Computed example of a mutant assay.
Amino acid sequence: MVTPTVSAHAYPWDVLDDPAFPDRVRDAGLDAVTLALSYHSTRAATPLHPQRRFVDARHFALYRPVDHRAWSGRRLVPSRADWAPGPDPGGAAVEALAAAGIPVNAWLVLAHNSRLGTLHPRLAVTNCFGEPYPYALCPAQPEVREYCATLAAEALRGLTPGAVRGVSLESAGQLGAVHLGCHEKTDGAYPAAALRALSVCCCAACRARWRAAGLDPGEAVALLRRSATAADGPPVPDAPGSVLLAARHTAADELRGQVLAAVRETLPGVPVTLHAHPDPWATGPSPGLTARAAEDVDALLVPCWPTGPGSASLVEAAARHGLPVDAYVTAQPPADPERLPAHVRGLRAAGASRLSLYHLGLLPPPRLPLLARLAKEFRS
């Protein structure tokens, strides 16, 4: 039987200037910390930190030095995080954890970037009404794939040898109509089929792929609009839908391939976990699994925040690909702490061999002992 691994997510600002952080990791019985080295905009609470209570990360940032030699001549260039301490907050946090004997998984957010999508809307996912989603860079765009590969290499370059034991890739594919952030006011507005149609990217690069596959882009857009506006939300028909999905998956495969090549050149032999969803139509931080994805990576992380039976079903579906499955669980409110122990036991029974807990910096103090309880339950 595979020994279960338990880790928890954190941001660099959670680690830096907090001498008690390593003790919290040990008290929770964690095997590793999954540390963000590139991350989208957020306003984060820091209830456990001795010096601050909020961090306003105003835009996507690379939490490593932005070496302009690596980005010379490019339009898509990440910004540095001037709200985080020091010139290399990610590297400093990795070093602090390494000095405390705590392994690190490097958490890389790739195509989710509101700043660059706003500056370059033609490179963003665009729906069938011509509306760009500025938070979502489209993997069908060659510039986007090159940007993500360079971002991954620069996030990992020059880190303490041996400190990073794994790499976790988030948004290594297409994001869609639903975006958690910016005071989201879209819940319940559209049925599931309409959201699927509104999540199909119709940018110039995607339309070119449809045309090459024999699908008329104008007809496809008209079909998507009908699906997005019908009261009962009819699904996209199978025949054009298969072309649309194949184009999306091909772009995701290309993006992932370039990113993995960069990761493996920078950190040879380090295992890579892919944030993914068994539903091939899924978009977002955990995009739908493609036919090739499981062949390319070492483990799959699936979103298991809901405590109902659906999360166990996702684990079961992911486990059929023959890779270790990492169940991603939040201990944050409003998750019910009384239901979470049974939830993680159910995920383990469903086939998860790893547990990723959210979040070592955001968790309110009364919930901190819950991490240790969940780690114990998962291992039992």
Rank of each mutant, 00 (worst) to 15 (best):
A349I: 06
T160M: 06
A70R: 14
R165Y: 02
L371S: 03
L37G: 02
T229K: 00
E219M: 02
N127M: 04
A136Y: 05
P132M: 02
L137Y: 10
P22G: 01
G218A: 08
A193D: 00
P50D: 07
H359Q: 13
V325K: 09
A93S: 11
R165T: 14
A106I: 04
P333N: 05
C182W: 15
V329M: 06
L16P: 12
P19Y: 07
H275G: 13
E146C: 06
A92E: 15
H40T: 08
A239W: 09
L362I: 11
C182R: 15
L198S: 02
R264A: 08
R24H: 09
V243A: 11
W210F: 12
L301P: 03
G158N: 04
R354Y: 07
P337Y: 03
V302E: 09
S227G: 15
D17P: 06
S72D: 14
A204P: 08
P280E: 02
R74V: 06
E295N: 10
R64C: 05
E184Y: 14
V2Y: 12
S353C: 07
L244R: 01
R64Q: 04
V6A: 11
A57D: 06
L35V: 05
P132G: 04
P142S: 01
W83C: 12
T330E: 08
L108Y: 01
A111N: 11
L267I: 05
D298M: 03
L195N: 13
V125K: 06
R248P: 06
R320K: 13
P121N: 03
Y135C: 12
D31S: 08
T250M: 09
L195D: 08
D216T: 02
L123Y: 10
Y147I: 05
A228E: 05
D336K: 03
L362C: 07
L274F: 02
Y328V: 01
W83H: 13
R292F: 02
P285N: 15
A10Q: 08
P287D: 05
H277Y: 11
T186S: 14
L244A: 07
A70H: 12
G269M: 01
L274G: 08
A36D: 14
L108A: 01
A197G: 02
T34H: 13
S199V: 04
R264I: 09
L362Y: 15
T330S: 12
P161I: 06
S227V: 04
G218N: 01
R256Y: 00
